[in-house]
Amino acid sequence: MIETYLPNVDWTKMWDATVETLYMTAVSTIFTFVIGLALGILLFLTAPGHIWANKLVNLLTGSIVNIFRSIPFIILIILLIPFTKFLIGTIRGPEAAMPALIIGAAPFYGRMVLIALSEIDKGVLEAARSMGAKTSTIIFKVLLPESMPALISGITVTAIALVGYTAMAGIIGAGGLGTLAFLDGFQRNREDVTLVSTVLILVVVFILQFAGDFAVKRLDKR
């Protein structure tokens, strides 16, 4: 039955590609989360009137974030080829896609973190300071928990964007469903392969969105 409608689909290959996509998305999301948080917190705390108020650092970080956020991902991949080669030793396969994925997504997420932190009531930060809280306490016990729903919905959006990026990275041979859809499906005129790969990517996106929305709902006690 399935063979009649999808004659060219190799399910083992399809499964391996799905796992690769999930692997690339998961690892790059984790790195993006950590680096984006660090960037967002740095931008927030170095802004005027905040604990680490520092015009130079703020401006520098802000510029880096803005530049990398503005470069189209496909161009970023190409620009990063030498860096990837140096870091990973190859420019093919899932690992080789990760530097570009992370460098593309972390500044994007960093901005979202900044917005999330800016929405925290300033009075709460003042209250924490009035209790004698250290900066690390303020970061880990006030800033992060108080903005958690926004941080989670931000990382959900970012993770979904990363699924899209992995598909794009597939064009230069990163592996995963993108490569399968492009090389095996599109270039060899096997529509069924392209179709199934696309459906699987959509399923991954829907699951991410659902999980993100669920987590936000659970966390938000406002």
Binding site: V124, T137, K141
Partner: peptide, 30 residues
Amino acid sequence: ARQKISMIFQHFNLLWSRTVKENITFPLEI
């Protein structure tokens, strides 16, 4: 010094992510 000079505020400034008890234990954690 601030741990011995407490403050309360017009808009309460509680952490919404913490329960009543967790809000009260916050300065003790600090």
